[in-house]
Write a protein that binds this DNA or RNA. Structure first.
Lengths: 340, 340
DNA sequence: AACATTGACTGAACCGGATAAGTTAGGACC
DNA sequence: GGTCCTAACTTATCCGGTTCAGTCAATGTT
């Protein structure tokens, strides 16, 4: 089966290629009657303009890029990225933009792919995930002048557009909630330490604990995997004065932590309260269901995609604050034991 | 910053565009000395050939497509797709192929996207997931002559290449394992009924149960979500003669089922055994850890991608059998109670 | 020494769109 | 009735690669 080209449409309509191009792109230069005739013929023979030809003659590639630099293991189990992607897709497919996805090993590989994509003109812009403290990708994207939206921030995003969520506020809300329940020894199992939002949460945790006069704000770093979450939990619960509540930086680690607590004979929530960050359906599947900090991740992705499309169309860089995660109390939190 | 083109390389090397093209693509027509000089210059100025220009002049787009037609909800929580994608990526990025991803609502939308991609020459081939009984996508892809690899089968894949795994054998192994433990009333919570592999498993389940002389092989259909898994489990466990073992078609439903059993006061595995299909890290996170049917999903994706690249290069269609899922017994299975 | 062959390249056509520049017909205007 | 203008096109060029058909010098062949 031969793919129809603009010349096929032109021939059947008895006009030139140029006229067809004007008609299909809503440009002036053809009468309304001719435009309708051309559109009808194009639809009839199932014509879609070659993205390559289009991209080559100066128009956009109608594609955006997204690179994930995480090991396959954590990618699979964390619902975050898939939810983000479905939100991004919702925005893109409405405008028939394509999403080009790549999974790489590290930041250097990611930067190399950005450079290659730029040279290949493969994408019109990119979404940047997992913003790091002192992120080396930002200056590269600025130098290439590749339209980009950083998912995260609000600091460290240079002159790029960013969409961020106030993690510090969400963390403060959580600690205050646990404080109100009576908890005085609260610990935290954090995510990868060089991610900016981890640093933000760690700082906020330290500050709010100090403000409330709580014991030292222990944060154990980890890598978001269940294994690390379990290990961190074991360490915390084995210490001489163990915490009465633990806040986890994702739901996978929280579930692992719950499992460890049960294994060690600690009842949840009567002897230990657990809060998960990222409220995926997983939190409702376990027993007791987990109190979690959640927000609409697909919407987050959709907003980021929308701003990227605007940046591609030439909009100036903006810093957009998205919804703050809110706490949904469930069965994993309660008052601490009187004298633990 | 201006993107370097082949003309820039040619000028600096003092040769024609054609010579540069031959040199970069490993074609004969330039001396080894000149080839090295050209390669050095291309690397120095960071030249990547425009994918659009390349695709336009007859070569491939160096991109493959993958469409997911599942609601955002199940996409996020099921590790399967993300693991598959990382495997696909591993194969693609080694050859610097791009992956174009799209999430759509249903099969019709998926077919429309295939037609559009084909017309746009946006992808050189596609990976087809979630093969259905009587799948309408297969004839369309055959008609378009768009290289494709079906992930699933082995039947119903027409003249397309397919990579499949023997689900029937895995299911039989599982039932025989439970039978050996002493179980005589085994039920199953199946996935979406119109997916081919669900039908395959259901048929195999019926056959093996009949062969072993077990009670009626009850399969409750569901949609892979935790909610449905919980509902199906409640129904099964509330029946007058309840099963002593349940096989779930994915791990998310198995975890939900475990939760329901615990909620109903049934001890796992002493009163109820649970087996999950898809052995993601989730299975090890819950308590007790789940006995699960697992296989290497990234490798599955990598194999599919490799065969797609071969199909793009003109290889004839083949039917490839991948590894069969194997059972990893953990804490969720054991002998049934004597007289339940 | 005349001629064929080969290697190393150049020049130009081509892919399929977008778009600037040119062409023509028809109507408005004085 | 000539001029000007505009709508509705057509023509030609360009984007940046690939590739085929030449060109030309060096080498081999008898």
């Amino acid at each position: 089966m031969k793919r129809p080209t603009i010349a096929d449409v032109a021939r059947r309509a008895g006009v030139s290629k140029g006229a067809v191009s004007y008609a299909l792109n809503g440009q002036p230069g053809v009468s309304e009657a001719t435009r309708q005739r051309i559109l009808a013929i194009a639809a009839e023979i199932g014509f879609s303009p070659s993205s390559a030809a289009r991209a080559l003659s100066g128009a956009t590639a109608r594609a955006i890029g997204l690179i994930l630099a995480r090991p396959a293991q954590t990618l699979g189990i964390e619902p975050f990225f898939m939810e983000l992607i479905s939100g991004v897709e919702a925005e893109l497919s409405a405008r028939s933009y394509a999403l080009t996805l790549q999974v790489v090993a590290d930041q250097d590989a990611e930067i190399a792919v950005y450079r290659r994509w730029w040279g290949e003109r493969r994408v019109d812009g990119v979404l940047v995930c997992d913003l790091r403290t002192d992120d080396r990708r930002v200056p590269v994207l600025e130098e290439l002048r590749l339209p980009a939206v950083v998912i995260g921030g609000p600091s460290g995003t240079g002159r790029l557009t960013s969409v961020w969520s106030d993690d510090a506020a969400a963390l403060v809300e959580t600690v205050e909630y646990l404080y109100a329940l009576g908890h005085r020894r609260i610990a935290r199992v954090g995510g990868l330490p060089d991610l900016l939002h981890t640093a933000t949460r760690t700082r906020a945790f330290g500050e709010v604990c100090q403000r409330l006069g709580l014991a030292e704000a222990t944060t154990v770093s980890s890598d978001y995997t269940g294994e690390e979450g379990a290990r961190a939990t074991r360490r915390l619960l084995s210490s001489r004065v163990r915490p009465t509540a633990v806040i986890y930086d994702n739901d996978v680690m929280a579930i692992a932590g719950l499992s460890v607590a049960q294994e060690m004979g600690l009842a949840v929530p009567t002897e230990l309260s657990i809060v998960a960050w990222d409220d995926s359906p997983l939190c409702r599947l376990v027993h007791p269901p987990l109190t979690a900090l959640g927000r609409d991740i697909p919407a987050y992705g959709a907003h980021a995609a929308r701003h990227l499309l605007q940046a591609i169309e030439g909009a100036a860089a903006v810093v957009v604050e998205d919804e703050t995660a809110h706490l949904t109390p469930r069965g994993s939190t309660g008052p601490p034991p009187f004298r633990p």
